[in-house]
């Protein structure tokens, strides 16, 4: 099975799964008559499930790939996506305890490194400089000019 067709199947299954999951949660809601706060969620669950089924039907109708057809190859760097997402998760998780200024500077520096194009050399000094300046200026700009107190964390003494 070619990737495109397999993807459409996966999308259909996910759509149906989301619909069923929502229906399951809706079933737990207390009922107080025909039109109550569960009424719209029931309609939505039905619509979501129906559209999931329709997507699966559309997948079945997809033509099989003909032999010799040019297959478009995409070069998707999932490793960088996963690394970037993990970095963001760590950044947010430690935002309150370690604080915005330190975490932002660290996050920016590492994220610059992760995203540096393969044909370029990482300029550590420049990256560290930009990370520190951005972090400090965002922190103080919001603190002083816009009354938004970002978590200071370890620097709160």
């Amino acid at each position: 099975m070619d990737t495109c067709k397999r993807n459409e199947l996966l999308i259909g299954l996910t759509m149906l799964g989301a619909g069923l999951g929502y229906l399951f949660m809706t079933l737990q809601l207390p009922r107080r008559g025909f039109v109550d706060s569960a009424f719209v969620p029931y309609i939505l669950s039905a619509v979501l499930c129906l559209l999931g089924v329709l997507q699966l039907l559309a997948w079945k109708k997809l033509p099989k790939p003909t032999a010799g057809a040019a297959v478009e190859k995409e070069s998707i760097d999932y490793l960088t996506v996963i690394k970037s997402f993990a970095l963001v998760i760590i950044y947010v998780a430690l935002l309150e305890t370690v604080g915005f200024p330190i975490m932002t500077a660290l996050y920016l520096y590492v994220q610059f490194l992760v995203l540096t194009p393969l044909d370029q050399k990482a300029n550590h000094l420049l990256y560290a400089g930009i990370a520190l300046v951005s972090s400090a200026s965002i922190y103080f700009l919001f603190r002083e000019s816009f009354d938004l107190l970002l978590p200071a964390g370890l620097l709160n003494f």
Partner: peptide
């Protein structure tokens, strides 16, 4: 915005 950053990470290194 967040989805755009993740999308960039896919191809950003070789673009």
């Amino acid at each position: 915005a967040v989805a755009e950053v993740l999308k960039f990470a896919e191809k950003g290194r070789s673009a």
